[in-house]
Simulated scan of single mutants.
Amino acid sequence: MRSTVADVMTTEVASVGEDAGYKEIVSTLLERGVSALPVLDGENRVVGVVSEEDLLHKVEFENDTSARAYWPPMRARLRARLSGAGALAERADEKAAGRTAAHLMSTPAVTVAPAALVIEAARLMERRGVKRLPVVDGTGALVGVVSRRDLLRVFSRSDSDIAAAVEDQVAEVSRWDRGEINAVVEDGVVTLSGPVRRRSVAHALAGAVCGVEGVVAVTNNLDWEIDDVAPYPQMGV
């Protein structure tokens, strides 16, 4: 059975309200040893996330009076606006002037549901370029946080546990393919060997085993009698 976000998330979550001040946010980040905090409204719903990056804009623009006094020519402003750079710079400047979480946070927050699979959360983190995801229920209320480290817990599964799960996959295939398949697990790497009737079965089994939680890689040494895998069509044929 695949692990969900609820299985690996942290439920004791550090967060701040929308009216939390800059120094309160910094103190909470340092005390809890995290790089970002969910920002909550009065009903415990996640309205944004404030990160170290958001806070560093104030350091970046601190005492930078020359940058604030300079106003580029109209042509340069139009070019920057069209490229999107102007909007990003304007937002960074706004955050530098911000005093509360409501002004400093990034919004909307990238969140995930407790029932989402761990692999789904990992893909979301990769796609959105974040290291932590607030976990919210159906109303948007905060119930936990899942980090990259939390997602890696599935790979701490023992070889014996992985082998038992792999054997279930092998038994299902052997039941109707009549193959004598062997599976060896070492450091999360599964090696499959033995005969099967069809090449498609060998491919399907390797794919199923690769999806077993905790499997790092699959070495497919299965032999087949019938090559029923259609070759890729050649151009012009």
Results as ranks from 00 to 15, higher is better:
2 R>A: 14
3 S>C: 12
3 S>K: 12
4 T>F: 09
9 M>S: 03
10 T>H: 05
10 T>Y: 03
11 T>A: 02
12 E>A: 06
12 E>P: 04
13 V>T: 02
13 V>S: 00
13 V>D: 04
13 V>R: 06
14 A>C: 08
15 S>A: 10
16 V>C: 00
17 G>I: 00
18 E>Y: 06
20 A>W: 04
21 G>F: 02
21 G>C: 07
23 K>C: 12
24 E>P: 06
26 V>W: 05
27 S>N: 12
27 S>E: 11
29 L>Q: 09
31 E>K: 09
34 V>P: 09
35 S>W: 09
35 S>R: 10
36 A>H: 01
38 P>A: 06
40 L>T: 01
41 D>W: 00
42 G>F: 10
43 E>D: 15
44 N>W: 09
44 N>M: 10
47 V>F: 08
50 V>P: 02
50 V>H: 03
51 S>P: 06
51 S>I: 04
52 E>D: 06
57 H>C: 11
59 V>S: 10
60 E>G: 06
60 E>M: 10
61 F>D: 13
63 N>M: 13
64 D>S: 14
65 T>I: 13
67 A>Y: 10
68 R>D: 09
68 R>N: 07
69 A>K: 15
69 A>N: 13
70 Y>Q: 10
70 Y>E: 14
72 P>N: 08
72 P>W: 06
73 P>T: 14
74 M>C: 09
76 A>S: 14
76 A>M: 15
80 A>H: 07
81 R>N: 13
82 L>Y: 12
82 L>I: 11
83 S>Q: 08
85 A>S: 13
88 L>P: 12
90 E>R: 15
90 E>G: 13
92 A>S: 15
92 A>M: 13
92 A>I: 11
92 A>C: 07
95 K>D: 02
96 A>F: 13
103 H>A: 15
107 T>D: 08
111 T>M: 01
111 T>D: 04
112 V>I: 04
115 A>R: 12
117 L>Y: 11
120 E>Y: 00
120 E>N: 02
122 A>Y: 07
125 M>A: 05
132 R>F: 00
133 L>G: 00
137 D>T: 05
141 A>H: 06
144 G>Q: 03
146 V>R: 01
148 R>T: 00
150 D>K: 03
151 L>S: 01
153 R>S: 09
155 F>G: 10
157 R>K: 04
158 S>R: 13
158 S>M: 09
159 D>P: 01
162 I>Q: 03
168 D>C: 07
169 Q>C: 13
174 S>T: 08
174 S>R: 05
174 S>L: 02
175 R>P: 04
175 R>N: 03
175 R>T: 12
177 D>S: 10
177 D>T: 02
178 R>S: 11
179 G>M: 02
180 E>T: 12
180 E>H: 15
182 N>Q: 14
190 V>C: 01
194 G>C: 06
196 V>P: 09
196 V>N: 03
197 R>H: 12
199 R>W: 04
203 H>V: 15
205 L>S: 04
205 L>V: 06
206 A>K: 01
207 G>E: 04
208 A>S: 08
208 A>G: 12
210 C>I: 13
210 C>W: 13
210 C>L: 14
212 V>N: 10
212 V>L: 07
212 V>R: 08
218 V>I: 05
220 N>M: 07
221 N>A: 08
221 N>E: 08
222 L>A: 04
225 E>A: 15
227 D>W: 00
228 D>M: 09
230 A>R: 14
233 P>R: 03
